[in-house]
Design a protein around this nucleic acid. Sequence first.
DNA 1: ACGATAGGCAAGAAACTACTTGCCTAACAA
DNA 2: TTGTTAGGCAAGTAGTTTCTTGCCTATCGT
Lengths: 100, 100
Amino acid sequence: MADDLFKALADPTRRTILDELTEKSGQTLFEICSRLSMKHQLGISRQAVSQHLALLEAAGLVETRREGRYKFHDLNTAPLRRIAERWPMPDPSEPEKRTP
Amino acid sequence: MADDLFKALADPTRRTILDELTEKSGQTLFEICSRLSMKHQLGISRQAVSQHLALLEAAGLVETRREGRYKFHDLNTAPLRRIAERWPMPDPSEPEKRTP
DNA sequence: ACGATAGGCAAGAAACTACTTGCCTAACAA
DNA sequence: TTGTTAGGCAAGTAGTTTCTTGCCTATCGT
């Protein structure tokens, strides 16, 4: 359960996919592939991206809907909230400690 | 940078360590070892735990201070905030969507 | 000084992950 | 019907990661 979430976030390519879906939700597999190679210089096969999307979906971070031969991928950030719930954070006035 | 954070969170044993440090900050390596095997039935060697702590420290989630022959481990949840910042979440009134 | 306790370093085994390759099905257009 | 486009499945390989084993250093008590 929580396993799927953190495993999904563990890979940099998957995090970039989440970034792209944040920017534009409802993309198809091919659209995501193009963006990864165009904007991020990621030389990665369609199947690899498809497998990443499957993991993101298992984690609940991506939801899909089929329309004809297209499958659209939507971002769902709700599962991320469980992270903040699990390890309570101090108030966000001081954003992050930098080693001085 | 972000890599270290998500890699650190990817392992279930490391997340349990964070849980333990949430409950009681400032534990030594041996204290953490005992708790993992007592409370969580994790048969794991001291060295394995030590390596986990090193990764958590690299991610900034754990900070350490030495005192004599003891090394105390403190939780720092600040890096977690970057997750929420990277992928904006809707307001938390509806906690999480359950597949109906 | 000696033993015991707390922790560290490093090399190898075992398990897991990401990615590729090759083939297959479904929807749409000519 | 034939070709094309969107996507799926599965087996194998290469690269990581986790964990163990064995040895080593530092601190403290007697």
